[in-house]
């Protein structure tokens, strides 16, 4: 199992961790899912021959968009990462996301990580 898949599995596990309480569960899930996405993108770039983990993530995404085949929906990755990032940064007393929203983003992240890994294998 790749690091990204492992992180996403952890993220999903967090959703059911009652010991954390409602809000923290969602935040933990977001943190792990985002790191999963970041890890998958870095892996894809590595497979494309770019060692990009020192770059800012937005820059990594720009590289990927440039290098990857158009079938890879990098923009979708970008959207989901921004949504997850939003939860993991402080925005002046913003309310936590709803459980439904978090579930949707996580599912999307899972789809995207699978897509990135598939693309990576294809490129290889």
């Amino acid at each position: 199992m790749t690091a990204a898949s492992r992180l996403l599995r952890h993220a999903r596990e967090c959703l059911d961790l009652e010991v954390l309480g409602g809000e923290l569960r969602l935040r933990a899930c977001a943190l792990l899912a985002r790191q999963g996405l970041e890890s998958a993108v870095a892996a894809s770039l590595r497979e494309l021959g770019v060692e990009g983990c020192k770059l800012a993530f937005r820059t990594q995404l720009a590289c990927l968009r440039h290098l990857a085949p158009p079938t890879l929906r990098v923009r979708r990755v970008s959207y989901t990462w921004v949504a997850l990032s939003h939860v993991t940064h402080y925005h002046g007393y913003e309310m936590p996301p709803t459980a439904e929203a978090m579930e949707n983003w996580l599912t999307e992240a899972e789809v995207l990580v699978a897509m990135l890994q598939g693309a990576g294998h294809a490129a290889a």
Partner: peptide, 22 residues
């Protein structure tokens, strides 16, 4: 301790710094 036991160190290491950053 109970959270460490249920969640596991691997996850915590990736979650706690994010919460601290918030």
């Amino acid at each position: 301790p109970e959270v460490v036991r249920d969640v596991g160190d691997e996850k915590l290491r990736r979650i706690v710094p994010g919460i601290c950053r918030l």
